[in-house]
Amino acid sequence: MTHEYFRTYRIANIVDAIMRNPFAYLHHLEGLTVNNGIYEFLPPWQKESALHKFIRFIADEVLMNDTDGPTRVPFGPDYLRPKWILPVDAAMLKYGIINEPLFFIPEEFDRTEAPDGEDEPPHTNDPHHVVNACYNYLLDLRWTQVYEDLMSRITDEVFYVMFLNRRALANLNEFLARYVGEVSRDFFDTDEAPLADLFAVDGELKRVRPPMWARRAVFYRDRGRCTACGADLSGLIDTLSVGNYDHMMPLARGGLNDVTNLQLLCENCNLKKSDRVVAPSNRYRRWY
């Protein structure tokens, strides 16, 4: 994948800040969890992981907030009198999704009389007409393929940056576990029986072995070493060491079968941890 890093670190910082104290942002996170929103996180080993879903939700909120003001980005060769576009169009241009802006922020006229030769004034004396125009544009844009393509690009880049941060991943999974732990199999309708079958008991998902792609991702992220004690698990130095793919948030506590909920532990550290909630190590190997 190629990276353009359009607001990547800004969105990553927002995601990390929210995950450090999610209950301070519950009102903003309702779209993820209310009205059975938690059900989307339940199927095991989705490549669009829990972190992908969360990033997409936050990125959409950031772009929507840009319409309140609105946030303006200059466009065009005239530096003195540029046209103004929204960051969402600037992002689509940056990623090569579009070749020209789809929307220009209208000027803030302050008149109610029609110009000469026109039947209607450009707008009424509404102080909110610019914000409303930007907001309506983004509402319509969210239903298009170009917006979906933009969300995928932004989400992939932020995921790439954040997947290394086990503490942030653990915080995310701890937040979601509170909702998974409240799910009863009696909640599901008849047509939702496959979701009910995912649970061993109420509030606890069945254990499903991680697929190869998830194990490889976690193994290389953690450099083939136990994240707790640092033991080599590659088999190159010590052929007797056994690697375990541990759920940072245990299934018994509402954890997900999700790549963002895994860490690499040696057999001894995994047995010591058991089904307890233990903060993952924040030690990482230097690049050089």
Results as ranks from 00 to 15, higher is better:
42 L>H: 09
19 M>P: 02
258 D>K: 00
135 Y>E: 12
263 Q>I: 08
142 R>P: 14
85 I>S: 08
199 F>E: 03
7 R>N: 08
231 A>K: 03
258 D>I: 00
86 L>D: 07
130 V>Q: 05
12 A>P: 00
270 N>D: 12
247 H>N: 04
20 R>G: 06
273 K>V: 10
34 V>W: 13
174 E>R: 03
227 T>W: 02
114 A>C: 10
127 P>S: 10
281 S>Y: 09
66 D>V: 14
270 N>K: 06
247 H>Q: 05
165 N>T: 04
68 D>L: 12
89 D>C: 06
16 D>T: 05
266 C>A: 07
191 D>G: 14
19 M>Y: 09
213 W>V: 11
268 N>A: 03
238 D>M: 10
264 L>T: 01
217 A>F: 02
215 R>Q: 13
262 L>T: 08
156 D>W: 02
189 D>H: 03
143 W>K: 09
80 L>K: 15
104 F>P: 08
277 V>P: 01
132 N>R: 11
65 N>V: 13
119 D>S: 13
195 L>N: 07
243 G>W: 02
207 R>F: 14
168 A>W: 00
50 A>V: 04
221 R>A: 02
276 R>A: 10
243 G>L: 03
107 E>C: 13
174 E>G: 03
285 R>F: 07
179 Y>W: 12
147 Y>H: 03
193 A>R: 04
35 N>C: 10
127 P>T: 14
132 N>M: 14
109 F>Q: 04
234 S>W: 13
165 N>L: 05
278 V>G: 03
43 P>C: 05
139 L>Q: 07
174 E>P: 02
37 G>S: 09
36 N>V: 02
237 I>H: 13
108 E>W: 08
216 R>T: 03
183 V>K: 08
189 D>N: 04
197 D>L: 01
102 L>Y: 11
196 A>P: 09
288 Y>E: 04
206 K>L: 13
269 C>K: 01
160 Y>T: 15
240 L>Y: 11
111 R>I: 11
136 N>L: 15
2 T>S: 14
70 P>W: 04
110 D>Q: 14
166 R>G: 02
42 L>P: 15
90 A>E: 07
63 L>A: 02
130 V>S: 09
219 F>H: 01
55 I>R: 00
244 N>C: 13
246 D>G: 06
32 L>G: 00
223 R>H: 06
198 L>A: 07
162 M>Q: 01
275 D>A: 08
97 I>C: 03
237 I>L: 14
53 K>N: 06
275 D>S: 10
66 D>N: 12
235 G>M: 05
248 M>Y: 07
77 P>A: 15
20 R>S: 05
102 L>F: 11
237 I>F: 14
78 D>F: 06
261 N>I: 03
